[in-house]
Write a protein that binds this DNA or RNA. Structure first.
Lengths: 111, 111
DNA sequence: AGCAGATTTCGCAAAATTGCTAAAGAATTT
DNA sequence: AAATTCTTTAGCAATTTTGCGAAATCTGCT
């Protein structure tokens, strides 16, 4: 996951937050579900991978691609995700992609 | 929206259901929100367009493309949707795309 | 500082999606 | 049933995404 402004510090905000709040604290992980709804796709993938405790290389292998591809997908600036790729990632992590069209302004809360 | 088995009858299941249950019956429309969560992307787009009471041509114009593209996106067999296109459609209809990775088996209910 | 692991970036080829036109097929209206 | 509107299909070009390897950058550890 690449930070927006800084060049290439894997010590970016998301990484810091992850370490501080989630690493080794199972109860915190539950909170992620809520926060995720407002996140970018790139960050969702990043969080998903972190929660599964995988390196990009490990996820890449599961998905059937390379680390450079995973890195690109986790790049906040990248906008070119395909549903097909998102599904491949989901499948690799025993998830499934759920998609909805919701009214532009309102944010729907999830049960 | 193309049916899976029949060749090209726009009198396919979805179309029939639409006419029978939704056309001119506002209260029925609410039920769509629930059903949609389990639908394919293709059908979501179709339902979205129908609820907006638009022809493929009208939607195409709003999105900035042609009817053939819309038709393809509504084809149940088509799997090549990109997030970018889904967002263009959402934007045209004053919606936004919400995406989640959920556990493979369970279906999350929406508020 | 040095080392090993992890992530990012670059460049180009391959594959997939979109853009578009025209024509055929189907549904609706008159 | 003829006319009109709507949708699907086909083909190909243009654009975009993916695939992939190698080098560069960054992190954590000793």
């Amino acid at each position: 996951m690449k930070n927006i402004r800084k060049r290439n510090p894997s010590s970016d905000a998301a990484e810091i937050i992850h370490r501080r709040y989630y690493e080794g604290r199972p109860q915190r992980l539950a909170e992620l579900a809520e926060a995720e709804a407002n996140d970018t796709v790139a960050r969702k993938i990043y969080e998903l991978r972190k929660r599964a405790d995988l390196t990009q290389e490990q996820l890449a292998k599961l998905v059937g691609t390379t680390t450079s591809v995973i890195s690109r997908l986790e790049d906040a600036d990248y906008e070119g995700h395909s549903l097909a790729m998102l599904r491949r990632i989901a499948k690799a992590l025993n998830k499934r992609v759920e998609l909805r069209f919701v009214n532009a302004s309102r944010r729907t809360k999830v049960a």
